[in-house]
Amino acid sequence: MQVNFYATLRPIVGGRTVEFHVGEHVTVKQLVDVIVERFPRLRKELLNEDGNLYPHVHVFINGRDAPYLPNGVETVIKPGDTVDIFPAVAGG
């Protein structure tokens, strides 16, 4: 599964897009666990002390932030879904 990273996350993963080998029916939460296992430095960027995604971190599945999907971070990612992960971003 391909995952796109942005902004300050890119130097940590070493590029824009990283391929992760996950099984079928992987959920958003499970994918995040796989990601931080492979890139331990991402743990403190993405997850709070309780192991939940920070509110300012965005894991988009087809452009929709995972917490707002009907099943939240338990949403199963389908083949062909676009996954984008952003740190805190703002400006104006």
């Binding site: 942005y6 902004a7 965005h58 452009g63 971003v89 400006g91």
Partner: peptide, 21 residues
């Protein structure tokens, strides 16, 4: 030198607003 606004400037927004429609 750590936060997205400092490292990339305001234009750090371009990808996220596009990705979220």
């Amino acid at each position: 030198r750590k936060g997205g606004l400092s490292v990339y400037g305001t234009n750090v927004l371009m990808n996220i607003t596009s990705a979220m429609g």
